[in-house]
Design a protein around this nucleic acid. Structure first.
Length: 759
DNA sequence: CACCCTCGAGTTCA
DNA sequence: CTCGAGGGTG
């Protein structure tokens, strides 16, 4: 390893060059981030570059010049506002990227301080804009942005527009207002309001675009366009605070939360956490989620908890800040030139990344709806590699402002579904092109059209023979909500409906129950060639439901082709599906607006599919939960010839189209009239079996939490529903409480929950 | 008519 | 999980 004595000359040229490139790039990004509020790389990428440079400098300290980006605390500042020196330099925090690094930090502290002599204060690290407020004798005299840590910008007039930041500290009666105190905090834009703001920005922009068109027609010059939507809430916060006109800032829903105290005179405190309480009493906004703990294990628990609930807080979180709570100990530990030794920031993996939008393609769904989706350069976000994301419809594509070829900002909404936030307009090179919605169905060529005048969605009207729609319908009718045919998954649905390989055995779903093993013999599927020397993308047609026959040298059959195990299973399951309850049959028909829940409601009143087919709109709309629109949709469905043919062929194949014993009144259950929601996974139950257990006892199980919900059953890894349930003060049951509810009834479960809350 | 609740539809990856 | 829209209620 090269020692500290290594001169610059001895460092390999490529290392020097790499370091210089990194320094240049980091400077550029920093400039864009702080001055222009328009970063072209995500935080994650910026951190990665910074870490690489740090690693090089660690190895070759000679490269660590005072002007290296690694030696600067924050960023630089915009020249539009007056620069003012901070009273005291604002330091940044060391980062921990994983739990090991937290342990290392904890080891250092316990070595120096001894075990059990101090506490940790855990705070959410808000992804916003750091601000430093100066109060003299309780009056807000100045508000500076963080800037480079030494000098910030004076944004006092704009800060004054934030309602929750007091311009005078409230005298709480118990404690004297200090002569001077610096309050540090984070200004943020609530995630919930962010979409709203962007929508209005898009609208304003569209209006000016429209106006410019008219002006051009009149030979006038164009007006300047209003700004593009913000890529994320943090940029929205920065952009809103940096308005030259404070009235614009005032119109934005900015908030602030205090996270530190700087220079102070006449303000003595023993603990950081107590200081926050005092500040709260003086009227300053403090955090709801802070926690003081004794051990690093509890810190990790806090870190893990909010890692899973990042989205249930009103602001974005990019990490957790952990501080030694006792102020005297903070003083004892001191700081390096860059950061205090008594605090560390645990950084979550970035939820937002940049990638390239390669193309926008259009998919056709079960109901014929044409949905544009993004095809992207594969990229890892929140733990998985993502290459596609839905764009919902043309309007959304337009609203997001993305062009094909753009670098885009991608994130996981609710940590699952990839969502495109918007383009990085500054990285455009002119080769990007606008997405044009196709006029024809990409699968069958039929002209797409809006079903109603005002509809945004375009649909392929060729419901009967569009291969995409047939394939999706087959897949759906085999699903959990319909016939529940395990052996018929997506792949099989594709094989059964291929129009381009061999005979298509299913012209529509009418023929499904007449399928025989014999018919399936010739069904083929396009598969990657699995043979030495085959090209990577070489494909061939292979039988899908039957095994391939083997021949000897003379060309005689050595092993005949025969149905695969899964094929026998399919035939058996089709047989079983014929006696499924009526609501499943009704769901399987893919009637618009009729899915499992609605189908169940209908079959409570109509025990016979023929009676439903013969019913009028009024009769159907009389069913509880069914209105005129769904009723009309049903009547219209049965009026189509090939739809009725599906019913007739199914009937001929032996599918049961009436509810047996339906006239028997359902016995009253112990949980009649109660509504429950299940969230997360319960040990010993699947999603469906827990639901079934409740329904069997007469309870109604819904998908969303509201004040009408009587019980919320929470398993492991609960989602946002749990948070909402807490918010609404509902009765929450875990696996144990769930057992009480099932075995002993509602009152016992309520008692159980109440007792749990007290203990 | 204005709410609030629910349902349907489309969706990604391993 | 999220969106939009249908249905019911005050």
């Amino acid at each position: 390893m090269a020692g500290a004595t290594t001169g610059v000359d001895e460092i390999p040229a490529e290392v020097r060059e790499r370091a210089a490139t990194l320094a240049r790039e980091l400077e550029e990004h920093r400039f864009r981030y702080y001055v222009k509020d328009s970063p072209v790389v995500s935080d994650g990428e910026f951190d990665a570059l910074m870490r690489e440079l740090e690693a090089i400098e660690e190895k070759y300290p000679a490269l660590r010049t005072p002007d290296s980006p690694t030696q600067k605390v924050g960023g630089t500042y915009s020249t539009d506002f007056t620069s003012v020196d901070h009273l005291e330099r604002l330091l940044s925090l060391d980062n921990a990227m994983n739990e090991e690094e937290l342990d290392e930090w904890d080891d250092r502290l316990t070595r120096e301080l001894g075990t059990g002599n101090f506490h940790y204060l855990c705070e959410l690290k808000i992804d916003g804009l750091a601000i430093n407020l100066l109060y003299e004798n309780g009056h807000l005299v100045r508000a500076l942005t963080r800037g480079d840590g030494r000098t910030g910008e004076d944004v006092t007039p704009n800060i004054r527009t934030i309602a929750e930041i007091p311009t005078r500290l409230r005298d709480d009666g118990g404690h004297d207002i200090p002569e001077l105190v610096e309050i540090r905090g984070e200004v943020f834009f609530p995630v919930e309001k962010f979409e709203e703001l962007n929508a209005s920005l898009v609208e304003a922009r569209a209006a000016v675009e429209h106006e410019n068109e008219e002006r051009r027609a009149q030979g006038l010059g164009p007006k300047a366009l209003p700004q593009l939507p913000f890529a994320n809430p943090r940029n929205a916060a920065a952009g809103s605070l940096r308005q030259k006109d404070p009235r614009v800032t005032a119109s934005r829903p900015l908030h602030m939360i205090v996270h530190g105290i700087g220079v102070r005179r006449g303000f003595d405190i023993d603990c950081q956490s107590h200081a926050y309480e005092r500040l709260h009493a003086w009227g300053l906004p403090t955090a709801q989620h802070n926690k003081v703990v004794a051990t690093i294990d509890e810190v990790k628990e806090f870190v893990r908890y909010f890692g899973e609930h990042r989205n249930s807080v009103e602001h974005e979180i990019d990490g957790i800040v952990i501080k030694v709570d006792e102020i005297p100990i903070q003083g004892r530990l001191g700081s390096t030139s860059k950061s205090p030794r008594w605090a560390i920031a645990f950084k979550y993996p970035p939820q937002e990344v940049n990638t390239k939008l390669l193309d926008i393609e259009v998919g056709i769904g079960r109901t014929g709806r044409a949905t544009p989706y993004a095809v992207m350069e594969p990229v890892t976000v929140a733990g998985s590699v993502v290459a596609r994301a839905t764009l919902h419809n043309q309007q959304v594509v337009k609203a997001k402002g993305v062009l094909i070829g753009d670098t885009i900002v991608l994130r996981k909404a609710g940590d699952v579904i990839p969502e495109i936030l918007g383009p990085v307009a500054d990285l455009r090179d002119g080769s990007e092109r606008e997405f044009v919605m196709p006029t024809e169905c990409p699968e069958c060529g039929t002209e797409l059209r809006a079903m109603k005048e005002a509809d945004i969605d375009l649909r392929c009207p060729n419901a009967r023979s569009c291969p995409a729609q047939l394939r999706e319908r087959i897949f759906y009718l085999a699903g959990r909500k319909a016939f529940d045919i395990e052996a018929l998954g997506y792949e099989s649905a594709v094989a059964l409906t291929r129009p381009d390989a061999g005979p298509c055995v299913l012209a529509t779903e009418a023929d499904l129950f007449a399928l025989t093993a014999e018919q399936l013999r010739d069904v083929q599927m396009l598969r990657k060639v699995n043979r030495a020397g085959a090209a990577e993308d070489e494909k061939e047609l292979v039988p899908y439901f039957w095994s391939r026959a083997e021949y000897d040298k003379e060309g005689n059959v050595k092993k005949p082709s025969k149905p695969k195990a899964n094929t026998d299973k399919l035939i058996k399951e089709l047989e079983k599906a014929k006696t499924q309850p009526l609501w499943r049959v009704l769901t399987a028909l893919s009637i618009r607006h009729v899915s499992d829940t609605t189908a169940r409601a209908i079959t409570r009143d109509f025990h016979d599919l023929d009676r439903l087919a013969a019913a009028t709109e009024e009769e159907i709309a009389a069913v509880d939960g069914i209105g005129p629109i769904i009723a009309k949709s049903i009547v219209e469905w049965f009026a189509v010839d090939w739809h009725r043919e599906i019913v007739e062929k199914w009937r001929a194949a032996g599918v049961r189209l009436a509810e047996e014993g339906a006239d028997v009144e359902k016995a009253p259950g112990p949980l009649d009239g109660l509504t429950a929601v299940v969230t997360g996974t319960l040990t010993g139950y699947t999603r469906d079996s827990s639901k079934e257990a409740l329904e069997q006892r007469g309870a109604k199980v819904t998908g969303s939490v509201s004040k009408k919900t009587d019980f919320v059953v929470v398993g492991d890894n609960p989602g946002s529903k749990y948070d909402k349930a807490v918010q609404l003060g509902l009765v929450i049951l875990d696996a144990e409480g769930f057992a009480v509810l099932l075995d002993q009834g509602a009152d016992a479960a309520r008692a159980w929950a109440a007792e749990r809350a007290d203990g």
